[in-house]
Simulated scan of single mutants.
Amino acid sequence: MPRKRILITGAAGFLGSHLCDRFIKEDYHVIGMDNLITGDLRNIEHLFKLDNFEFYHHDVSNFVHVPGELHYILHFASPASPIDYLKIPIQTLKVGSLGTHNLLGLALAKGARMLIASTSEVYGDPSVNPQPEEYWGNVNPVGPRGVYDEAKRFQEAMTMAYHTYHGLETRIVRIFNTYGPRMRLNDGRVLPAFIGQALRGESLTMFGDGSQTRSFCYVDDLIEGIYRLLFSDYPHPVNIGNPDEITIRQFGEEIIKLTGTDQQMISLPLPTDDPKQRRPDITKAKALLGWEPKVSRSEGLKITYEYFKSLPQDLVEKVEHKDFKHYTR
């Protein structure tokens, strides 16, 4: 029986590469696509020798053509960190709008089921905690985070329009803070920022007094949730994340303890529209998918720290320190 074929966009990125691994393991024919604007081929180079993996160097904001049958599309192409979408705001908006439109059209033409990667950023700086899928959010569309937040909100609206108007099989995952191997040290998100600073012997920089909260989900747990959602029959958004909430200050202290360093934590001004709290309500994921996170933060952080320690020294040192004066996720 021929393998089912799946297209994964953003395949060379953090989450995209782990999804490629999962579907290769499940014996799919995986077609990876990435324009490499933030992705890294080193994340998927171990797959190039396989006969059930192929790679297209392509920007999905342009017309997308994939020959042959296509059964599933996972749309994970997008800058996903503050530093990235501050540097490339137009591309961020285009991949969420034009890219999503192109891929929905491809899914319709191929009769494929499509899952899009949305994010907890659709909730903005929430006035509700934890955030359920029914919460509509508190987003500033013209603030510095607006290019990412609104790209994802539009992406959800476009996907639901294709579902309701065309009857297209669609799924929407709202991803909360995720961490693990293959994250980039210089992408500005709080976990790699802290670990990178610890590895370089620098003080850990938090914003404000560090009382804002985040909830960190290990990548293997997230991938399992996405896998289950794809094969569910639920077309509406589903939160996937770890509801174990922690303040940024407490998290920094955990990193200092983990790395065995004695750095201080220093405070920088709180950035514009930085969310004060972030915690998923995963009631739907539990009920619909039978999913909840399994990996504890202490266990996941150990694995992630060992990964970062194994990186070549030039990758650790090449971080542009000035970027950390921006906000983190």
Rank of each mutant, 00 (worst) to 15 (best):
V60L: 06
L70C: 01
P89D: 03
L106I: 00
L98W: 14
V60C: 07
L103C: 04
H58G: 04
L108E: 06
D51H: 13
I83K: 05
P67M: 05
Q91W: 12
Q91P: 09
P79Q: 05
G99E: 01
L50D: 04
I73W: 14
L103V: 04
K49H: 13
N43K: 08
A107G: 00
P89H: 03
K49C: 09
S61G: 15
F48M: 10
K94I: 13
G96V: 02
P89E: 06
H46T: 10
F63V: 10
K49W: 13
V66G: 00
L103D: 03
L47I: 11
E69Y: 13
L93A: 06
H71K: 00
H101G: 08
L104M: 08
H75T: 02
S61P: 03
S97H: 13
P89L: 07
Y85T: 08
N43R: 06
L74C: 10
P82C: 11
P89S: 04
L74Q: 06
V66M: 00
A109L: 14
L50K: 12
H101I: 15
N52T: 09
K110F: 14
A77Q: 01
L50S: 08
F53D: 01
P82R: 07
H75V: 03
D59M: 01
L93M: 13
H57Q: 15
L74I: 13
N62C: 06
H58F: 12
K94T: 12
L108N: 05
T100Q: 04
L103Q: 02
D51K: 14
G111I: 05
N102S: 11
T100G: 02
L74H: 04
H71L: 07
L41I: 15
G105L: 12
K110H: 08
G111R: 03
K49T: 10
V95Q: 08
I73S: 01
N43V: 12
G111W: 06
N43P: 12
G105D: 13
L93K: 02
V95L: 13
S97T: 15
S97K: 11
I83W: 06
L50H: 08
F48Y: 14
H57P: 03
A77N: 05
L103S: 01
T100A: 03
L108A: 12
E45G: 04
Q91M: 14
S81I: 13
L98S: 13
K49N: 09
F63G: 04
H75N: 12
G68S: 05
S61Q: 11
T100D: 03
I88Y: 09
G96M: 03
L41S: 10
G68D: 03
A77Y: 00
V64W: 11
V60P: 00
V60Q: 01
H101W: 15
H71V: 06
H46V: 12
T100I: 05
T100M: 07
T92I: 11
L47K: 06
H75K: 05
L106R: 01
N62Y: 14
H101Y: 15
E45P: 02
E45V: 12
Y85P: 07
L74S: 05
P79C: 09
R42Q: 15
L74K: 01
K87E: 09
F76M: 09
Y72N: 00
L41P: 03
N102K: 01
P82I: 10
N102I: 03
L93H: 04
V64Y: 11
G99P: 02
L47S: 07
I90R: 09
K49M: 07
L41T: 14
A80Y: 02
V66Q: 01
D51M: 08
E45H: 10
H58C: 09
K110D: 07
V64P: 00
N52H: 15
